[in-house]
């Protein structure tokens, strides 16, 4: 059963189409990844889901409540871990949690218990009375996560929760998310680190320029690449006959041409490379660049958009 349903969601800011007809569902207990480069529309999508931004078009329901018609009910069902460290640096960990807990109407007795549990969960129990301004970046991120969990939400949204975090804290956050998922929490996780999505998510939607360009399990998406992708830059445009000969190579599954770069989807990247170089030598075709992409989500994104994920 879908806890979250997003149908044809669009958001326009002035002349900018931030989100363009996005649709997806998130099942109860699922970790759903929303992947894409900065500016892809991930945060805008989350802003609509958490009732902060009104959609220009489309329907979004969470736990059966429309984000536009019943925002208060949606607010009580969700927890949000924003990209910013949205904490009071002058307050300590407990004071931050206590304040936000009160804002979510957590009963006083339950709140104190909840604060203790959450501090344990994110590994900050020993630093509970320390001012947040003295926390490391990773500790702040972990407390940021704890605040998002205070209301004991049914659906948790994490917007780039590991930006600027040291590897140790990143692993701690991953462990927290996996533990929460095991407890049945439904999670939306946005990131531009594809390896995080591969590790954590049951399904991922890849966004670019406001649209979802692929949606499946990480493995299925990676499988679309075959056994590896080779990008070869060429000096001159290749005529159609040459492209046909390349496509006919035994280890090549498909060839696409984008600007001066050929993208080869292969059955075996190394063997395919030997075949391609052999053909280039025979036809005096000059190579200007060569890149072999590992079969992973990052390569899927590059294959789909022709852009590097973190530079785009």
């Amino acid at each position: 059963m879908a806890l979250v349903e997003v149908n044809n969601l669009s958001k326009i800011y002035g002349d900018v189409q931030a989100v363009d007809g996005v649709s997806f569902e998130i099942q109860q207990g699922e970790i759903f990844g929303l992947l894409g480069p900065n500016g892809a529309g991930k945060t805008t999508t989350i802003n609509v889901l958490c009732t902060y931004t009104e959609p220009t078009a489309g329907e979004v329901t969470i736990a059966g409540h429309s984000v536009t018609a019943e925002p208060e009910a949606v607010k009580r069902a969700i927890g949000v871990v924003p990209q910013d460290i949205a904490l009071y640096p002058d307050l300590n960990g407990v004071e931050n949690l206590r304040f936000f807990g009160r804002m979510y109407d957590v009963p006083k007795a339950r709140l104190e218990q909840c604060i203790g549990e959450l501090l344990e969960l994110v590994g900050l129990a020993e630093h509970a009375r320390k001012r947040v301004e003295h926390y490391s970046g990773g500790m702040k991120r972990r407390l940021n996560l704890a605040v998002g969990l205070l209301s004991e939400p049914r659906f948790l949204m994490l917007d780039e929760p590991t930006v600027g975090v040291d590897p140790q804290s990143r692993n701690a956050i991953f462990e927290n998310i996996q533990a929460l998922s095991r407890q049945g929490l439904t999670i939306l996780y946005t990131t531009h680190y594809m390896e995080e999505a591969e590790l954590l998510c049951d399904r991922v939607a890849i966004m670019d320029e406001g649209q979802i360009i692929a949606l499946d399990t990480p493995q299925n998406l990676i499988n679309t690449l075959g056994m590896g992708i080779i990008h070869i830059g060429v000096k001159d445009d290749l005529h159609e006959e040459m492209l046909a000969r390349l496509r006919a190579l035994p280890q090549v599954k498909a060839v696409t041409c984008r600007d001066d770069t050929l993208a080869f989807e292969t059955k075996d990247a190394q063997r395919a490379l030997l075949e391609i170089i052999g053909l280039f030598n025979k036809t005096d075709t000059v190579m200007t660049s060569l890149e072999i992409l590992e079969p992973n989500l990052e390569s899927v994104f590059i294959q789909l958009t022709g852009k590097q994920l973190r530079d785009s």
Partner: peptide
């Protein structure tokens, strides 16, 4: 600028 105002806006307040 810090984001706490937004965090409060998306709370049931």
């Amino acid at each position: 600028e810090r984001g706490t105002f937004k965090r409060l806006l998306i709370a049931p307040i």
